Simulated scan of single mutants.
Amino acid sequence: MAAMTQPLRSSTDTPLAEPSAPEPEAPKHDAFGVYIHVPFCASRCGYCDFNTYTPTEVDTSHATYLDALEKELELAATQKLPKADTVFIGGGTPSLLGADGLGRILTAIKNTIGINPNAEITTESNPESTSPEYFEGLLRHGFTRVSLGMQSASTPVLRVLDRRHTPGRATQAAREAHAAGFAHINLDMIYGTPTETDDDVRATLDAVLDTPVDHVSAYSLIVEDGTAMARKIRRGELPEPDEDTYATRYELIADALEKNGFDWYEVSNWAKPGGECRHNLLYWTGGNWWGAGPGAHSTINHTRFRNVKRPERYAAMLAGGTLPIAETEELTADILHFEDIMLGLRLKQGVPSGWVNGDVDKHVRNGLLAKGERIAVTDKGRLLIDGIITDLLASEDAE
C-alpha cells in the first residue's frame, strides 16, 4: 500500500452502508490506545501462532527494529492522532529488549503521538528475561503495569507447551515487580493443555493466589493449525483437548479467584478493584488504537489496517518513508454490529438491550442470559458464551 500522507478519513467523510442493526444507544469508548508489537522470541512455544521470530528465522537486531519502529511512530503522528490514554507493548517477548530498550519505545511514543497524564502503560514480559533490576528500570521509564506469562505451575505442562521458564519463576517475578513498586501486575494462565490434570490447575491457582498480583487472565488452550502442538496431536502423540475438560477447569479457576477477591469483568479476565486492564477494555468496547510493529493491527475511525508481518520488509518500507501497511478494511455497520455483540457480551456489563435483535429470550429461559436495560451473560452462560453469541447472530440473520 502507498504511504499515507494525509490523515485517515474520519467516519463522517464517507457515509457507511445503511445499517442492518440499531446504532449503539450510548457513545463508544472514547479513549485512544497505542499497541507496540515486539516480534522476537528466544524460542517458539509449541502452541503459538503469533507473528514472532527466533534468531534462527530472521535477523533479530534490536537496533534495526527500534530504528524502524521510531520511524513508524513519526509517520503515525502525521495522522493527527490523539494522545494515548493507554500503551501496551506485547509480542513476542518484549522483555528481550531490556528495560532501556522498552524505555526507548516509550520515549518515542511520547515524542510523536504523545501520552496523556495518568495513562496506563503496560508491557508483557517473559519471567525468564526479567529481574529486580529490570522491573526497577521499567518503573523509572514510566511503565505502570506489567503482564507476566505464567501459563502453569506444573513442570510437565510447561514442557508440553514448550515453555522455557521453570514453574516458580513467574510467581517470583511477580513478587519482584511488586517489590520494585508496581501496583498493577497480571499473571497469564493457560488451561486445557493436553496431559494437564485438575490438580495441576489447582496447584497453579494456589501459586497465583500466593502472589501480590491484582489481575489474572486465564485462557483455554486453542490448538492452531500449523503449530508444533497441532502436528503432535495429529500424529497421536498428544490427546486432543476436550470441551468438557475446558468447562471443568474454567469453573475451578473462576471459583478460586472469585473467592479470593478477584471479580470477573471479561469472561477470561479477573481483577481486584481498580486492576482491570484499561487497554484491553478499549479493544472490547470499540475504541481506536494505533498498532505499530511488524504484523500489528490498528483501528482508526472505522478503518482497520494491518502492517506487513516480516520484520525485514517492515524495516525496508519505513526506510523508504512508507507506512508498512499490508491491507486495509473499512468497517461497515454490519461488521461493527457483529463486533459489538461478539466482544460486548463477553463483558460482565453486557450490552444495551437495543443492540441485540436475535432470540435473546430463549437464552434467558435457559438461564444463560439476563435481560433488562442491558443484556448480560449469567455465570452459567459464561461456560457457553461462544455458542450463545454465535446463536444470537445467526438468529438475527434468519429474520
Rank of each mutant, 00 (worst) to 15 (best):
D188S: 08
P22W: 08
A174I: 00
I335V: 14
L75W: 06
K80P: 02
L138M: 08
K80S: 12
A3I: 03
K259Y: 00
E120H: 11
D225Q: 12
S43N: 04
W284I: 06
I185G: 01
A218M: 05
N269S: 15
M229P: 11
A77K: 07
L323M: 15
M4L: 15
D67W: 11
A17P: 07
A315I: 05
I335C: 01
S154N: 05
E312D: 15
A68T: 06
E133I: 05
G275M: 07
A333Y: 00
R278W: 10
K380E: 13
D85M: 02
A3H: 13
P127K: 01
V34I: 13
P194F: 09
L369R: 09
A2G: 13
R231E: 14
E258R: 12
L66T: 07
G274W: 08
E72D: 07
A99V: 00
S220Q: 15
S61N: 12
S220P: 13
N186E: 11
A99E: 07
T130S: 03
A319R: 15
P132T: 02
G91L: 03
P194I: 11
V208W: 00
F182G: 08
G387W: 09
V308W: 05
G387Y: 02
A316V: 06
N51E: 11
V146H: 02
M342Q: 07
G358N: 09
N51W: 09
F182T: 08
D206F: 00
T245H: 12
E258I: 10
T14M: 08
T54F: 03
D391C: 07
E399W: 07
H302Y: 14
V216A: 01
Y314H: 10
V223W: 02
R306T: 15
A254K: 13
K309A: 15
W284R: 09
N280Y: 02
L393S: 01
A68Y: 07
D255K: 14
M229L: 12
T93I: 01
D210L: 01
H37C: 05
A42Y: 06
P19S: 04
V223E: 07
K348I: 09
R159H: 14
D379M: 08
K362I: 09
Y53W: 15
S353N: 09
I105W: 05
R164N: 13
T155D: 14
A218G: 10
K309W: 04
S125A: 15
N280R: 10
A26W: 09
L392K: 04
W264S: 14
A2R: 14
G291E: 05
M150Q: 02
V308H: 11
G387V: 06
P324C: 10
F135C: 00
T390M: 13
L209Q: 02
E373P: 08
G168C: 03
P167K: 01
L16V: 05
R235H: 10
L75S: 08
E72M: 04
H337M: 08
R249V: 11
T130K: 01
K71V: 09
T166S: 13
R365V: 06
H37R: 05
T64Y: 04
D244K: 12
T332L: 03
Y246W: 14
T204Y: 00
S217Y: 00
Y283P: 12
I36N: 07
E224A: 03
